[in-house]
């Protein structure tokens, strides 16, 4: 009984953070800010849901697949975010109007 309650609470929290991350993808002004919101919130939300599934299912095949999914998400998602951010900066997509400094562009000029 208490196990099911904890699992359902984790699934609810994960769904809420997934929704907030997608809302950030729509609301924030440029590529980099959208990447920040989307990567953090959606990774944490999906990991929370998979953790809840593992708690609900216990040590069987379904639960181990959920654990494998958590490990894969935590390794893959920051790498994809980093690659997309670098590609966007190198293909000269402008930053949002309120941006203060861009020291990466300064260093690329020197090279």
């Amino acid at each position: 009984m208490i196990r099911e309650t904890i699992g359902l609470i984790l699934i609810f929290v994960g769904t809420a953070f997934d929704f907030l991350g997608v809302l950030g993808l729509v609301r924030l002004p440029d590529v980099y800010n959208r990447l920040q919101a989307a990567t953090k919130c959606v990774t944490f939300g999906s990991a929370g849901i998979l953790c809840g599934v593992f708690i609900l299912q216990g040590f069987n095949t379904f639960g181990f697949k959920a654990l494998l999914g958590i490990a894969f998400i935590f390794m893959a998602s920051p790498v994809a975010a980093h690659v997309i951010a670098r590609a966007a900066h190198r293909s000269k997509i402008a930053l949002a109007p309120g941006t203060k400094t861009d020291q990466y562009a300064e260093d690329k000029e020197l090279r």
Partner: peptide, 26 residues
């Protein structure tokens, strides 16, 4: 507005779908 925005959205969609499919499996 740019290609990178679409790329971000597609990348996020892949991570979103794994949570949704696990709920369907439950």
């Amino acid at each position: 507005p740019s290609a990178a925005d679409r790329l971000v959205a597609v990348d996020i969609f892949g991570i979103l779908i794994i949570g949704m499919l696990s709920i369907i499996g439950l």
